[in-house]
Each structure stands twice: as structure tokens, then as C-alpha cells.
Simulated assay, not measured.
Amino acid sequence: MTDPALSPAEYDAIADAAAHWCMRLHADDCTPQERLAFEHWLDAHPLHVSEYEAMLEIWDVAGNLPRPEPVAVPMMQAKPRTPWRTIGIAATVCAMVLPLAAYSGWNLGWLPNSYQHFETTDNVRQITLKDGSLVELNLGSELTYSNYKDHRQVTLKKGEAFFSVNHDTHHPFIVKAAEGKIRVTGTQFNVWMYEDRVKVNLIEGSALVSSIDDQPGDGLRLGPSMQASYGHGDFMPQVSQTYANDTSLAWRSGKLVLDDLALNDALPLINRYLETPLMVADNSTGAIRIGGTYNIRELNSLVTSLPKVLPVYLTRNKNGNPVLNSIPQRSPKS
């Protein structure tokens, strides 16, 4: 038997309670009894879980607000949330955190006036952001978009995205990826994040790339046909030229092109499409080269077919990862 639809007032009451629990769980004086009461509240209705998770997400977006300590909550299907509903939750949080924020959060640049969340699994997806910019999301990707008074902000949480950004000199477009960021005013570029590394390919216009979010200065400037990469601990991005035959954007057509790459270089490109990463046993295996064009939706079948086309065999490590091992070459008889 399903529960009857809740009224707007009842939804608001749940949002207020979720904001309250975010505050209390973050407070230094939060007692064990309060934490137990929170668990009971969480179990009382499925909507309590989704509203509390939404509240934590708003804390992520509003970076100037304190973030509560993470509390494990059961994974449940959240009900669809309209944009006005999300902003209402944000306003509730701000009203509880800072007295003036309920009406000045936008003007002070603390809170966005629009917020979007997108995620892909097994399909490339084309989306339109609130500012009219277009984004293509690769398989297994996730991002959020927030429109602040003085800038537009995307957080790429995982995967890869191609951006066609609407030009607005006075309202820059910032993509946060791993520990760095990319700042543009209107251009086309691709951002790929794998583990702790980020690669940026600029197609047209210009972009400023920083490997550290709060790095002094504007970052390194990219021009058309240039790329930058950075990872954890890099003080500055590494910049290089994109070659005319570059195939890194073939994913937009559903393809992965491996152009005679060593397995060590090919595995990051393959693993972004696999649930369980493929590994190599040693450097000699990693030096074996692979080529070809593959459907990005069928990369799992590539793993099992590699021993048929390369001098390798498959094993699994203790974590369950498939591991490629090179077949020893026999010495010719003298």
C-alpha cells in the first residue's frame, strides 16, 4: 500500500527537519541521544532519506557554508525534485546557518539561483544547462551545475564532458575537476577526469587552467588545439599541443580509438568504461602495443578477447581485477 501524496506544507516540514539534523549532526555538542533520534527520524519515512541526502548535496554546492560530518544513510530511490524545490531547501539551510542568508544568499554570492544535477550510466547524453550552454556527457559521468551571481559553476564529479559554453564576459564559466579548475567565458572544450588526473582539450576560444583551485593568478592560458593535464600534487598543469589526428573525442560518436598504444597508456582509456579496472602484471606486459576502434558500450567484451589478439593471458588478483600477463617468448633452439 502506498502512502498518500504529501501536501506542500508537509514537504516543507520534512525539509526543515532535514536541515535541522544537518546542523545538529555538525554541532560539537551533538549528543548520542540526538544521533539515535536522527536514526529513528531517518527510518520513519522514505522521503526523509532523500531530503537529508539533498541537504548534504546543497552543502556541497554552497561551499561557503559549513559541511556536516558524513552520516551513513541507506541507499533509496529519491523522488524527483523540481528546481524551485531544491532552491527552497538551500534557503532553509541558509536560514538556519546564517540569519541574513535566507534573503541575501544570492546577492552575497553564497547560493545559486539555479542548480542542476546530471549523471550517465551506459549512454552518452546531451544536456542543456540553465544558461543555454550545451554539454555532452560520456558514459559513467556525473556533474552538477550552479548559477551564482558572479559566475557559472560546474563540478565534474567523475567521467568526461564536452562543453559548448555560451559566451558571457561578465559571468565566467568555471569547471571544477579534481583539485583544479578550468575558467572560460565562452568556448568549446573537453574535460576528462580519471582517478586523480584531469585532461583538458581546448577546441576553440581560450581557457585558463589551474591545477589547484585556490592557486594564485589566473592559471595557464590555453589556445585552440592545445591541451593541459594535471594531477594530485602538481603545482602547475602540463601543457602540450594537440595533434591533427587526435582521436580523444571519438567517444562523442560512441567510439574508442586506440592508435598503436602501449597497454600502460591504453588502460586508462579502456578502464573508464569498465566496472572493474583492467590491470597489467608488469612493465613488460604494459609495453605491449594495442590498436583498433571499439564501441564504448562493448568494452567488457574487449577484455576477454585480448588474449586472442595479443600475446597475453588473463588472471585475477586478490581484489578480483582482471590482470593481463605477457606470454613468455621461447628462445629459438640453437
Rank of each mutant, 00 (worst) to 15 (best):
8 P>N: 02
9 A>M: 06
9 A>K: 12
9 A>H: 13
9 A>I: 07
9 A>P: 03
9 A>G: 03
10 E>V: 04
11 Y>K: 08
11 Y>C: 03
12 D>H: 09
12 D>E: 13
12 D>G: 09
12 D>I: 03
13 A>K: 06
14 I>Y: 04
14 I>L: 12
14 I>D: 02
15 A>P: 00
15 A>Q: 01
15 A>C: 02
17 A>D: 07
17 A>L: 08
18 A>G: 00
18 A>Y: 01
18 A>I: 00
19 A>T: 02
20 H>W: 02
20 H>N: 06
20 H>D: 04
24 R>P: 00
25 L>K: 00
26 H>W: 07
26 H>V: 03
26 H>Y: 06
27 A>W: 00
27 A>M: 01
28 D>K: 10
28 D>I: 04
29 D>A: 07
30 C>T: 07
31 T>W: 04
31 T>M: 07
31 T>N: 03
32 P>H: 07
33 Q>R: 08
34 E>Q: 15
34 E>R: 02
34 E>L: 05
35 R>G: 04
35 R>D: 08
36 L>K: 15
36 L>V: 14
36 L>I: 15
37 A>R: 12
38 F>M: 05
38 F>T: 01
38 F>K: 01
39 E>T: 09
39 E>F: 05
39 E>D: 11
40 H>T: 14
40 H>C: 12
41 W>N: 05
43 D>E: 15
43 D>R: 15
43 D>T: 15
44 A>F: 07
44 A>C: 09
45 H>F: 03
46 P>H: 04
46 P>W: 04
46 P>C: 09
47 L>R: 11
47 L>H: 13
47 L>G: 03
48 H>E: 08
48 H>L: 02
48 H>D: 03
48 H>T: 06
49 V>K: 06
49 V>A: 12
49 V>E: 11
50 S>P: 11
50 S>F: 06
50 S>N: 11
50 S>W: 09
50 S>K: 10
51 E>H: 14
52 Y>H: 10
52 Y>I: 12
53 E>N: 14
53 E>D: 15
54 A>Y: 03
54 A>C: 10
55 M>N: 13
57 E>F: 10
57 E>P: 05
57 E>K: 09
57 E>I: 08
58 I>P: 02
58 I>G: 11
58 I>Q: 09
59 W>K: 10
60 D>A: 13
60 D>L: 13
61 V>W: 02
61 V>G: 03
61 V>E: 04
62 A>T: 11
65 L>S: 13
65 L>V: 14
66 P>N: 14
66 P>T: 13
66 P>L: 15
66 P>E: 13
66 P>C: 14
67 R>H: 10
